[in-house]
Design a protein around this nucleic acid. Structure first.
Length: 876
RNA sequence: GGGCUCUUAGCUCAGUUGGCUAGAGCGCUUCCUUGACGUGGAAGAGGUCAGAGGUUCAAGUCCUCUAGAGCCCACCA
């Protein structure tokens, strides 16, 4: 056995001398493939050879990797994304496409700032101890610490990304792109600054987009509160889940057709706990059947109420601050209390005053911050909004016109449904870690906002007026939503135009709404084209028992640990096997183990072939001679075509299974076994090169390692070409199928009767005569011989007259088997007969199908005849 | 309230436009150290495709309903 150390050295030497000599041979390597020995060197070899850069004259094929958070470690979801994308890229590269896989990393504004704040907290500091500039710089350094780590993780996963195109979402090209788009929207009136209700996290001190709020069903209460009419003529009872907001009430609304309240409309109610009087208005948004049919209106703290307030021109009285405390606009003694405290006190005070009618249990859904779980407060705040209607409409039209293919298709419908009810997008965030919004406000005229890119300055002057920079940054999705073209610097620069639109966008379905939808809208808006031709959405990766992976459950699998233990190829194949678009999938280690074994199988197939062709082999002209040769070529051709078709349609799992079974079942178990009888050197080599190529997208490391160790060609496998076919004789290939049937039956019989090592006799069968040696070997027989006549146990699955030299007494034990076979065969025949006896089947089914049924019947009858003949021989 | 998905062998899952005598991996049973591989080889067992209707010559595949599991969206005071 070869020393691992020297193996390693050889490959390193190879890396350093790409056009040089091969220093190692497979047969001198260990019997077991050890990925750790080769993976890093192989990746380095690819990088050094610039194999990832687009090359050739084929059609462009491009993918941009969804940028993972720059400060985090890759998880299994990333491993899946990279696996699927890299398979698609490597496949197209081998097919001669100009391929480009763009790597990147996301600054993940809010996410990253939260992580950094946690670190600050450990040092006993808070972000408010730092200026925005300091905070930005510190986080920049913090993220930079992890950058190498992160890039190396891509390498370990074997992603053939073009590092020349590496993009960070805070790179100047991305910022420039974001500004340009913002400016275009600004000029076209799509950007507006509005005092709107925003989803505000009082803990993190920033607003969120609607899509970022996490709603949860919660057990709460419904409080019924009595508001007496100002004229003393009665009272109106309102129901609310948030009694503290009554401090900010500016009206009570009832449904205009609600007979109970007909006389109330236009009157005034006294607001308990305050000195204020508020009008009773009519609005048909009120649900007559909910609560009392009368609803308190708090425009500053409720979306519905805000809209009602706009309709009725009501004031917006803010009683909850950005810190989540009651403001001084509320009467004493409430200011300064937290929302929770105020709720308690308000309820207690109302009860004391006799204004509380009753309290009911009530389940409703409450918005939470997805990071810290704080209840989101709807608060009024001036923010930048994008008018989404024209963008959404364009996207809907494009989707309905089928300009993007979705895998799975159902997700498209979901996306259209989402786009149809989309509201304006709040793109301002009150954090430091992000792209500053290039807008400045006139210090003397708050209404005067200008667009200006001098964001490094806090104060600027223009036209003798002084402007102050908006301290906010863009929502991360605003810039990452432009990823497909920002990474390519398209359309500003035509250099990479050929790669746009991208061929594929592969990502998790959980970001269909926040990310994919925005890429489509912004892509159409900026480039006038869809940003990608296809979307493939994978589901969540769950643990082995179908549970969501989470740190708190302790069931998280680290992909790099799996790579360490089983190899990068094994992780890749294990994670895509049995995977289908749009469905969640458990991570099953068994599949990784199976894939590891497959890599090892490939390794040993190669060792065998090298042993046959010898160490200094160079590929010759493969010519099929035996039936097995013709058969494997036919199979290879079929596999090659089918695999290409499946990969073109992104049927990854099926494609993997196909190459797996071709290599394992057809090549290793049949062809190589047959080769041991009559080896065809050049054809074995050709078959090996072909399967290494076909398997390369799925198992890049082991295939390239073998390729390099074989050293038959100067090219790298990664940039080699997809196999072209060699013509084979169909009749000869069919002969091998017949041999397989004979061998399989021989094995079955000898297994059942425990009679290995018998002789197979036959009369007048050239196929058996010509392949006697092969059948002897494969069937584990003593011999295959032609004679005039004789006694024994006859084969029933072939039309050749052949029998095993098994004595009558032993052979009788096989009767039972024959009976079972007879019964099942009869069943098959009955089914086929009744189908063919059905007139409407003959009339309606396609001719080919009917023809197929006829030949199936004919075959089945022949087999049954054989079984019957043999059965009768024994029962007589 | 609206929309979507899933239910196929003991386990985890595949199954393009309906043509199947329903597949894979793992697990299970029996046998085999044949000079590529025991991370191997050979032969097996195991499912009325959740249930009920319907369309069709033909349904795991299309339609309707029922039951169970799950996801997404929404202005549920």
């Amino acid at each position: 056995m070869c020393e691992p150390q020297s193996t390693m050295r050889s490959l390193v030497q190879f890396v350093n001398n790409i056009t040089g000599v091969i220093y190692l041979h497979l047969m001198k390597l260990p019997k077991i493939y050890d990925p750790k020995e080769y993976e890093a060197d192989i990746y380095a070899l690819w990088e050094k050879s610039k194999a990832f850069a687009p090359s050739g004259k084929g059609k462009p094929y491009s993918i941009a990797v969804p940028p993972p958070n720059a400060n985090g470690d890759l998880h299994l979801g990333h491993a899946l994304t990279l696996a699927l994308e890299d398979i698609a890229i490597r496949f197209h590269r081998l097919r001669g496409n100009r391929t480009l896989l763009i790597p990147g990393a996301d600054h993940a504004g809010f996410e990253t700032q939260v992580v950094y704040e946690r670190r600050l907290a450990q040092e006993g500091k808070s972000r408010f101890d730092l200026t925005r500039e300091e905070l930005y710089k510190n986080i920049w350094d913090f993220v930079a610490e992890n950058r190498d780590n992160f890039e190396n993780q891509y390498r370990r996963l074997g992603a053939s990304v073009d590092w020349e195109h590496y993009t960070f979402t805070l790179d100047s090209k991305v910022i420039k792109r974001a500004y340009k788009t913002f400016k275009k929207m600004w000029d076209e009136g799509l950007i507006y600054r509005g005092e709107r209700l925003v989803n505000f996290c009082t803990h993190h001190g920033t607003a969120f987009a609607d899509i970022e709020v996490e709603y949860k069903e919660e057990q709460g209460h419904l409080w019924y509160i009595r508001y007496p009419l100002a004229d003393g003529s009665g009272e109106v009872v309102v129901a609310t889940t948030r009694p503290e907001t009554m401090l900010g009430d500016v009206a009570v609304a009832v449904h205009p057709e609600d007979t109970r309240y007909k006389g109330f409309i236009g009157k005034t109610a006294k607001l308990p706990l305050t000195e204020r009087e508020i009008p009773i208005i009519a609005d048909d948004f009120v649900d007559k059947d909910f609560g009392t049919g009368a609803v308190k209106i708090t425009p500053a703290h409720d979306q519905n109420d805000f809209e009602a307030g706009e309709r009725h021109d009501l004031p917006k009285l803010t009683v909850i601050s950005h810190e989540g405390k009651i403001t001084h606009d509320a009467p004493e003694p409430y200011p300064g209390l937290t929302v929770q405290e105020a709720r308690k006190k308000v309820v207690a005070d109302l009860e004391e005053q006799g204004a509380l009618v009753k309290t009911e249990n009530h389940t409703h859904s409450v918005g939470h911050c997805y990071k810290c779980d704080t209840i989101i407060q709807p608060l009024i705040r001036e923010q930048w909004f994008i008018d989404m209607e024209p963008l959404a409409k364009r996207a809907i039209d494009s989707l309905e016109a089928g300009e993007i293919i979705f895998y799975p298709e159902a997700k498209k419908k979901q996306l259209i449904t989402y786009l149809k009810q989309l509201r304006d997008w709040n793109i301002s965030r009150q954090i430091a870690w992000g792209i500053p919004i290039p807008a400045f406000q006139n210090v003397d005229d708050p209404e005067d906002w200008i667009y200006d890119e001098r964001v490094t300055e806090e104060i600027i002057t223009r036209d003798d007026k002084t402007y102050h920079r908006d301290p906010d940054v863009f929502d991360t999705w605003f810039s990452s939503g432009q990823w497909p073209f920002a990474t390519l610097e398209y359309p500003d620069d035509e250099t990479n135009a050929e790669f746009y639109p991208l061929s594929l966008m592969e990502t998790g379905f959980d970001i269909l709404m926040p990310w994919v939808s925005r890429m489509i809208m912004l892509g159409l808006y900026v480039t006038d084209q869809v940003p990608f031709k296809a979307v493939y959405l994978h589901g969540l990766i769950l643990d082995e028992h179908g549970q969501k992976m989470s740190k708190s459950k302790g069931n998280v699998t680290n992909p790099l640990e799996v790579v360490d233990k089983y190899g990068s190829d094994a992780l890749r194949m294990g994670i895509i096997s049995g995977q289908s678009a749009g469905n969640n999938q458990p991570f099953v280690l068994g599949k990784v183990v199976g894939a590891r074994n497959f890599a090892n199988k490939l390794w040993n197939v190669s060792r065998f072939v090298e042993g046959i062709v010898g160490e200094n082999y160079s590929p010759g002209d493969p010519k099929p001679e035996t039936a097995a040769d013709h058969w494997i070529l036919t199979k290879l051709q079929h596999t090659t075509n089918a695999l290409a078709k499946e990969l073109e349609q992104y049927r990854f799992s099926e494609a993997y299974e196909r190459i797996y079974h071709f290599i394992w079942d057809d090549l290793a178990d049949w062809y190589i076994e047959a080769s041991k009888a009559t080896p065809n050197t050049d054809l074995l080599a050709y078959a090996l090169e072909s399967v290494l190529t076909l398997a390369h997208p799925f198992a890049p490391f082991v295939t390239e390692t073998i390729w390099q160790a074989l050293g038959w060609r100067e090219e790298l496998l990664i940039t080699y070409h997809w196999p072209s076919s060699i013509s084979a004789d169909k009749k000869a290939a069919q002969d091998f199928e017949d041999i397989k049937i004979i061998v399989t039956e021989v094995r079955y019989i000898t297994n059942v009767l425990k009679e290995q090592g018998r002789t197979l006799y036959f009369t007048d069968a050239p196929l058996l005569a010509e392949n006697a040696q092969l059948i002897t070997r494969l069937g584990r027989l003593r011999a295959v011989q032609q004679i005039e006549s004789g006694k024994g146990l006859h084969l029933t699955q072939t039309h050749h007259n052949a029998w095993l030299d098994i004595d009558q007494a032993t052979a009788r034990n096989y009767l039972e088997e024959l009976e079972v076979k007879k019964a099942s065969q009869t069943e098959v025949i009955d089914r086929l007969k009744s189908r063919l006896g059905n007139k409407s089947y003959i009339d309606n089914a396609p001719k080919e199908i009917v023809k197929q049924t006829r030949s199936q019947l004919k075959e089945a009858e022949a087999v049954l005849e054989g079984i019957n003949r043999e059965y009768n021989r024994f029962s007589n």
